[in-house]
Amino acid sequence: MIVAVMAALLVTMVLALARAFVGPGRYNRILAINMFGTKTVLFVAVAGFLFGRPEFLDIGILYALVNFVAVVAVLRLTHYDDDLADDLADDLADDLADEPATDGEDRA
């Protein structure tokens, strides 16, 4: 039975992965990856039972926590104006171009 559960989890992982590849857009990917993360939690827990190593569950706890932090970080950090960052990057490129070019730099 446990093997069957594991197979189900693997199949679901593949499905989630497919969604993460296809997208479209950021939110679909976050969703898919979040789901993939919880499936790994289950996978590790089930693997612990399958191989008789219940200390795997510690790792499961860790995944559950860390996955959540990662999702929050994605939301918090991607939710802003991308154009602003592009402008800033362009500024930096301009600054670098303004500095007197040193010979050898291009040769390097």
Binding site: A20, R29, I30, I33, F36, G37, T40, V44, A47, I59
Partner: peptide, 13 residues
């Protein structure tokens, strides 16, 4: 970056 997190998850498994 998100997918590389996923990569780490699989590696950890």
């Amino acid at each position: 970056a998100m997918l590389s997190a996923l990569f780490s998850l699989v590696t950890a498994c």
